[in-house]
Nucleic acid binder design. Sequence first.
DNA 1: TGTACATCAGTGAACGCGCGTTCACTGATGTAC
DNA 2: TGTACATCAGTGAACGCGCGTTCACTGATGTAC
Lengths: 218, 218
Amino acid sequence: MTERSAYHHGNLRRALLDATAAVIAERGVAGFGLREVARRAGVSHAAPAHHFGDATGLLTAFAVEGFTLLGTTLAAAPIEPHDPVLGVGIAYVRFAVDHRPHFEVMFRPDVVRAEDPALLAARATAIRPLTAGLRAAAVASGTPASPGDLEGVDLDAVALGAWAQVHGLAVLLLTGNIPDSGETVEALVRRVSTATDAAVLAWAAPTGRRRARPAVRS
Amino acid sequence: MTERSAYHHGNLRRALLDATAAVIAERGVAGFGLREVARRAGVSHAAPAHHFGDATGLLTAFAVEGFTLLGTTLAAAPIEPHDPVLGVGIAYVRFAVDHRPHFEVMFRPDVVRAEDPALLAARATAIRPLTAGLRAAAVASGTPASPGDLEGVDLDAVALGAWAQVHGLAVLLLTGNIPDSGETVEALVRRVSTATDAAVLAWAAPTGRRRARPAVRS
DNA sequence: TGTACATCAGTGAACGCGCGTTCACTGATGTAC
DNA sequence: TGTACATCAGTGAACGCGCGTTCACTGATGTAC
C-alpha cells in the first residue's frame, strides 16, 4: 500500500475490519467498541460511523467477510474417499481456530444484523460444501440420489449432524472445554470421526447378536 | 416465601440469580449488568457486590448453577438400548433450549472466572454421563472394557464426538442457524442420530464392494 | 423477660470512565470549463 | 495547463448515558448476660 495523505486514509474500511479482528483477538467480542477500533486504526473516533453507520454495521460486515472466507476455505477442502465430509469438517474446525475473531462474530446474532441479506447469502454459500460433499459422494457411488435421500438415508439430517459436530468441536475448543492433547486440529477431528464410525459399526448390530466383524479401525 | 422486612431481603442471592436469568433472557449476555440485575431484584445497585463481589462473580455462580442443573438433568436421562448416549444427547439439547440463559453463560469463559474450582467441578460432574453412558454400555454388552477402549474403539473420542454433536446442535439452534422445521428437539436429535448411523453403515464398506445390507432405517 | 451490643445485609450519594451519537467543520480529491 | 467548485472522507468538541466501584451510613437480627 502506497503512502497516502495523512488526511484521507485510502482504505479505512479495510483498516477498520483489520482493527476489529485485532481488538476481538485481544479482548473478545465484549471488548469491542467503535472508539477502540478507531484508536487502533489511528483514526478519529467518529470515522467508523462514516463507513458502517454503527457498531452493528461494522460487526455485520466483519461477519460477512468471515462467512465469505469460510466459504472459500470449505470449497477448497479435499474430499476424502471414505468419508465425503471429513475434509470439509477438518477445514471447518481449522477455520474457527485460525480465524477466531471472525468465527466468534459469525454466530452471534445478538451482535450483528442477523437478517442482513448479504450475511444470509454469505452464510448459505459458506456451508454449501457440507451438503454438496454428501451429494457428490452419492452420485459418485453410482446411486442416483433423489433429492435429500440416498439409500433411504436422510442426507439433510446427515449434513446437519456433520455440521453440528464440527461446529461443536470448534466451539468447545475455543471455549477451552477440550483439554489440550498436543495433537493438531486435523488429528483431533480425524480421531473423533474414526472413533464415531467404529462405535456405530460395533454397536449398530441388533442386540443379542454380537458382531463378527471387528471395529473398523482395529 | 414468607413476608420479610423491607430492609433484609431474606434470600437476595437467589433473587439475584433469578434476575440474572431474566435479564439475559431478555437482552442477552451483553445486556447483563450489576445495576440492571439489582433493579430487577428491587434492591439497591450496590447490593449485588455484597454477595458476589463483582459481575464476574455473579456470572460464575450463575454458570455453576447451570452446570449443576445440567448434571442432574443428564444423570436422569434414560439410556436407550441401541444407542447409549442418545438419551443423554436429547436431554443436553433440551437443557440448552429450556435454560438458554444458563447455557449461554456456561460456555463463555470470557465472562466468567473460568478457573473457578467450583465451576470446574460442576462442569466435570455434569458431562460425566456422556462417558458413563458409553462405559455402561460397554460393560452391559459383556465386553470388559479396558479403560478408554472397547473392541478397539477409542471411547473418549466417541464421547467427545457425541458431546460436540449435541453441543453443536444446541448452539446452532440457539443462534438461529437451524431452520424451524416444527419438530420437537427430541425428534430433531433422533433424526440426526438415525441418519448419521445409517450413513456410516451405508458408506463404511470398503470402496468397490457395495453393501448388500440396506441402510438401517430403510 | 429485658437490655446492651456485635454483626452484617443492604443503602444511597458520589466518583470517574468509556461509550455511542451528533454536528459544524476542514482538508484532500476529482471534475468541469 | 490553470482555475473554480462540488464532493466527500475524516475531524474534534460536546453531549448525555449507564456502568462499576467506593464508602460512610443505617436498619434489622441474633446473642450474651
